[in-house]
Each structure stands twice: as C-alpha cells, then as structure tokens.
Nucleic acid binder design. Sequence first.
DNA 1: GTGTAGCCCAGGG
DNA 2: CCCTGGGCTACAC
Length: 155
Amino acid sequence: MQTRTSETIVVEWNWDFVARLKDGMVLKACFARECVEESIESEFAENLKRRLERYFKGRAVDFTDVNVLYPTPFSERVLRVVRSIPFGLVESYSSIAEKVGTSPRAVGVALRSNLVPVIVPCHRVVSKAGIGGYSQGESIKKALLELESKFHGKL
DNA sequence: GTGTAGCCCAGGG
DNA sequence: CCCTGGGCTACAC
C-alpha cells in the first residue's frame, strides 16, 4: 500500500539516519544534524525501517530491491554498478569506472550526486590511496565501513 | 613524501 | 558554447 503524501523514516544510530519516501520509492536520505519527526503510514515504510534497523546493527541487509531516484542517466549507470557491491566488500573508483566505461573522476561526480546513501552504498567505493571522499562526511563513511567491518585499509 | 597532467561529467555563465 | 571544479590516478621527481 502506498500513500499520496510523503513519509519520513528515522533510524537511530551514531548519527540519525533519515529517509523521505513517496509513492513506494525513496526520494532522499541523509544523516540528520537536527531532530526530525517521523511519519510512517505504509507497509513499505515500516518494512524499510525494520531493514534499516537491522543494517545499522551490523547485519548484512540487501537494499537492491528498493526503488530509488537517480539524478541523471549517467549517474544511474554508475549507481547501478555500485548497488551490486555486496555488504562488507569495497571497490575502487577506477574499478567502477572500468565497468561503466568512464573515468574515476566522473565516478566521483556521480557518487556525490547520490540522493540515497546506505540504500545505494556509495560508501563501499574507496580510493586506491585511502578511504576517499563522502558526501555525508568522511567520519560517517569510516563508521559505515567499520560497521560492515571489512575495510582493512587505513581508516 | 609532493607536483602535475590527464580524466569526463555536471553546473554555471 | 566555453569555462571550472571535483568523493581520482598514474607517474615523475
């Protein structure tokens, strides 16, 4: 069942994770700096919230079935590849670039435009030299990789 | 370690 | 159109 108005999920963690939903898809997600009021009506929202709670407890939750918004056709190509990286694994910008047929720089641009962190796991893309950047802040990227506990590079 | 030249897309003028 | 600036990389010192 879907709702006409948008819904908001809030999941507590080191930072509060907030997702805005509408018409059975996730429009936008972020880590909140301030208090956000939750409003859940649909089964879709309840189900997604349960899965996010399990994820933030460190369980290997898969979000590849969740409908999300892609900003541009190019970023969609990049982000679809990124979504295929399994929980607990990482890939380099250049590896993604090779699969898409573009340059590592352009991959970074596409990742930065990702509207739904965690659900589209852009934190699993790391630089050859270190951890690489993150639109939500480097400390959150580190924490997510630690949560998935498979990043053995320099944090 | 630091400098730098390619990379290629998105956004703004 | 032509800039400019990135969640980068490889290679040269």
